[in-house]
């Protein structure tokens, strides 16, 4: 194998992604924090989840062609921003729901 640490890295990444997921679930369902806190914590956890995914499963630092990584990330950000911001915009300014 080219990357001897792949197995270890995969298990490490997998465990962390599980921990982050269940942490988010428990914080939402089993705590009495105010809503603002909950949202802040979940978004923070989601950010770390993103980092874990990019580093351990998308092999962001391992590729030999940098421009493909850059294009991927930029395109991903474009789609994410368009869908999330777009959805919020569409659902908030819907004349039927007001």
């Amino acid at each position: 194998m080219e990357h001897p640490n792949t197995l270890k890295k995969h298990i490490f990444g997998f465990l962390w992604s599980l921990i982050l997921t269940f942490a988010a679930l428990l914080i939402t369902l089993r705590t009495n924090l105010p809503l603002g806190w909950k949202v802040t914590i979940i978004v923070t956890l989601a950010f770390f989840q993103l980092i874990i995914q990019l580093l351990y499963f998308m092999h962001l630092t391992e590729g030999d062609s940098k421009w493909i990584q850059v294009v991927n990330i930029v395109y991903g950000l474009f789609v994410a921003i368009v869908t999330v911001a777009g959805s919020i915009w569409i659902m908030l300014y819907n004349t039927m729901t007001h």
């Binding site: 474009f78 789609v79 368009v82 869908t83 777009g86 300014y93 819907n94 004349t95 039927m96 729901t97």
Partner: peptide, 16 residues
């Protein structure tokens, strides 16, 4: 990725 609303123009989204 930036055209999807045209499937539900009549859902009542604002003019913008």
């Amino acid at each position: 990725f930036v055209v999807w609303v045209h499937h539900f123009f009549t859902m009542g989204s604002g003019p913008w």
